[in-house]
Amino acid sequence: MVDVLGIGVGATIVLLVVVLHFSRGTEWTPTEDISSDVLERRASTVPETDFPEPMNRSIGGGGVAAGAVGAGSEGELEDGEGEETVDDDPSAIPDDEAETYEIEFVKEGTTISVKENTTVLEAGEEEGWDLPYACRQGQCISCAGHITDGGHAEDYIEHHTNEMLGDAEMSEGYTLTCVAYPTTDFSIETGESP
């Protein structure tokens, strides 16, 4: 009928669970969470920047132009030091005065007209193409492309604020599309880096 051994084992297990439930244990308490303090301490050692981290497209792919710092900011340059003139920025050319060039986007299979005050990246994005980029300031090579017409890249485009490509890469036809303004007609393969 009723198995005495089964009842004995069941009662023992129940009793053990009740005893463990009401026991005080080791009274161990977890230590204070210091992770936010550690992160703040590490962050305080890194200087602030006005541009997003490379390869992070979720933040819109851009901030202010390279070197543009609000008045009164830390690290402000002395008067006259490191100033760029507005005249060397092709984007400052008014639309009604800008020349237009034919640029063939090889991988996209289309030739489009691009004004000299528009970057190659912006022109491709206006066509609805998802071209690679990250900083939009010439400080990484995420947006690199290869001009397939041969010769030095600056025979075809003007780089504004290029900080990554050297003369060796540009002589092979590589360019940073985010800061590349056309100066003549050419063909380009986007997403190609040296």
Rank of each mutant, 00 (worst) to 15 (best):
L77P: 12
N117A: 05
V120G: 01
N117W: 01
E125R: 08
W129C: 05
D155F: 00
Q137A: 15
K107N: 14
R136W: 05
E102M: 09
P132E: 15
L165F: 05
E84N: 13
G70R: 14
D95I: 03
G151P: 05
L121D: 08
C143G: 06
G138H: 10
T85V: 13
N117K: 06
T111V: 14
V114D: 12
R136D: 07
V69T: 14
Y156R: 00
Y133N: 05
E104D: 10
H152M: 06
G82I: 10
G67R: 10
G109K: 05
I147P: 02
D130I: 01
L121G: 07
E125Q: 08
A71F: 14
G109A: 03
H160P: 01
C140W: 02
E97W: 00
I93M: 04
Q137I: 14
H152R: 11
D88Y: 03
T85N: 13
Y156A: 01
W129G: 06
T119N: 05
A168S: 09
T111N: 10
D79P: 15
Q139M: 14
E158H: 12
S142E: 14
V86R: 15
M164D: 08
T110C: 00
G124V: 09
L121W: 12
E158T: 14
G128D: 05
G82L: 14
G138N: 10
S73C: 08
E169G: 07
E81R: 11
T118E: 10
E81H: 11
I157T: 08
E127A: 11
F105V: 02
E74W: 04
D149S: 06
E108I: 00
G67Q: 11
G150V: 10
V114G: 08
V114R: 06
E99Q: 05
L131D: 07
E102T: 12
C135I: 09
E116R: 03
D89H: 01
L131H: 06
A68W: 09
E104A: 10
E158I: 07
E104I: 05
D95F: 07
I157S: 01
E158L: 08
I93C: 02
A134K: 03
P94H: 05
I112H: 09
A134C: 07
T119M: 04
V69A: 14
S142Q: 07
Y156Q: 01
A98M: 02
L131F: 13
A153S: 13
D167I: 04
E76R: 11
E163Q: 12
E125C: 00
E78P: 11
N117Q: 04
L165T: 00
E76A: 15
T118G: 00
D79S: 15
A123F: 06
G75N: 11
E76H: 08
D87P: 01
G150N: 09
H146P: 08
T111W: 07
D96T: 13
D167C: 03
G150W: 03
G70C: 08
C143Y: 06
D79E: 15
H160K: 07
E116L: 01
C143M: 06
D130G: 00
G145T: 04
